[in-house]
Design a protein around this nucleic acid. Sequence first.
DNA 1: CTTAGCACTTGTACTATGGGAGTGCTAAAA
DNA 2: TTTTAGCACTCCCATAGTACAAGTGCTAAG
Lengths: 347, 347
Amino acid sequence: MITLTDRQNMILKAIVRDYTSSGVPVGSKALAAQLPMHVSSATVRNEMAALEELGLIAKTHSSSGRIPSVKGYRYYVDHLVQPDPIKANDIDIIKSSLEGQFLKIDEIIETSAKILSNLTSYTAFSLKPEHKQSRLSGFRLVPLGKRQVMAVLVTDNGDVESQTFNITSKITGDQLEAVVRLINDQLVGKPLDEVLTALKSDIPMQVAHYLQQPEGFLKIFGDVLTKAAQERFYVGGRLNLLNFSDSNDVDELKSLYTLMDHSDDMADVLGQPTDHIQVKIGSEMTNDILKDYSLITATYDAGNHGTGVIALLGPTRMPYSRMIGLVGAFRQELAQRLIDYYRYFDQ
Amino acid sequence: MITLTDRQNMILKAIVRDYTSSGVPVGSKALAAQLPMHVSSATVRNEMAALEELGLIAKTHSSSGRIPSVKGYRYYVDHLVQPDPIKANDIDIIKSSLEGQFLKIDEIIETSAKILSNLTSYTAFSLKPEHKQSRLSGFRLVPLGKRQVMAVLVTDNGDVESQTFNITSKITGDQLEAVVRLINDQLVGKPLDEVLTALKSDIPMQVAHYLQQPEGFLKIFGDVLTKAAQERFYVGGRLNLLNFSDSNDVDELKSLYTLMDHSDDMADVLGQPTDHIQVKIGSEMTNDILKDYSLITATYDAGNHGTGVIALLGPTRMPYSRMIGLVGAFRQELAQRLIDYYRYFDQ
DNA sequence: CTTAGCACTTGTACTATGGGAGTGCTAAAA
DNA sequence: TTTTAGCACTCCCATAGTACAAGTGCTAAG
């Protein structure tokens, strides 16, 4: 456990603030000038040497100013940062963007990611509120004319997944109905992952009683099921990555985008945030690709409809006070909005 | 109409080939060495001066080698290029990627864009075969438990669009059924754009007979309808743009990506290709953003199921002979695959 | 413990400098 | 008339050198 003197705290804080806003290593002279008490640059230099010794700041070359290290950011975020109060203007934007009469909760969550990315010029993620584990609450096949059928799967928290497919003429409506009844009798009420394992073991045999070639149907059912089982998240401002990845390394950018498209990996990155607001800095994240980025995650509470997550991905060198303030305000607005939403639709 | 001597043709061809493969302006000496007949560099210089006079090639600075101009590429593509015969390896990749047992035609079209982008390291587009104008062939509302309803719209060429929404408790099943019947009675068989205009004029009044607050329903119906009316195209290898846009201009990249996400603008760019294979070079395209890019579009024939489009977007400086060869081979493979597909499902 | 002073280090911006690649032009050769 | 050798000239580019600004660590005095 690191403990610093008051003056050291002030210096570290000033370094982080300066560097995150200017991007240039900060030197002792500039630092001395902006500190509230009167100290000489030499004194500041001594303190800086101490902070460097502790691993909180670092030099880019032997005679450069200092930049915060990951450890330094960590200490700053844990002990020093005061979230900026949100600008009245920003709160207006949030409120007005959320207030439209959305018909689906997914739309609210999706626009959330967009607003957040617009306000910050970073990349934002949003996950809708979710009970731990959703269960299958219904499956049906809707015939759509000659040979087309739509498979629709509903879960107990209202998620709907669907997919259309063509059937060969050999299959009759009766057969399909029998299969649907089978699925519903056996699997409704079960958690989705159990359904998935059932689909790999005994279900195929049973389906084979009714269909000669069950593979096609089983593939569709499996597809829809995995789609529903996946945690769906929305991404806003993907293109903003181009702004703040100062490296011109194309490959790095590519792997970042690929990462964002893999919901499994991304769920991994977001983790399961327990706190209200959580900050992960650079190498603290498991994924190596993100070593120059920081992630602010926050949960938001949707009453008895569970807890969702919003997240913000930006450069390690980000103005944490502003961003934390913004995310904090946003999660409250969103929670409020969802309560309204559910009040309306729960009747 | 420009006419060149044989030797000038050879020189222009060599310049394009050299420059597209190396990216470096080509000089008279290197050129003289590789021409089949014996000429001195001085002669080549004279010829180059003539080609420059005609606007077919240009210098990057007063004493540099030459690069082809847009006009030069145009001439090359129109008169000189010989499509490369496709590599046996590539044709294997195409065949095997297309041969899986797809259940929906969209999957074939989507993978097409992927294969094409993989083979070329460029960005590829694919549009599915389409009759000029699709018509509404059915609309229905499928109840999914308590308050959720799924709106499903089917067109006469088999496209399906759906969307779920929540209804307030005030609406009864009977009311919904009446609305569905209304829609089907009045609008089935009409082209989608007529349906859209109807939706803006007399339909709302009629729907109001059955629902107190028709706005929600009308929005959903409109959404699903516009989704169906839009030409859907697939994009493969979006990230490849990062490779070959040598400019580090982030804004340019952003507008490119934004362009690709707007299906209207993109349909504009793709145009309505009439030829089998068509090449648009740099500033020949209407859209200014694409001035450093070239687009190869090709139609593919799906028998009596209409004609689709595939396209390839790469840098102006691309190896046209290889790309044209590849696109040509691909469109044939795809057409063949679709004939198989339809034979199977049309029964 | 703080500070002034100073020698030292490093990045950056600017300025030669020379070589290489390529051109256009001229005059002679084919 | 066409081709070619020769040559002066232009421009890019990589390299080295220089000066300067910003900043550091250390020492010795306050």
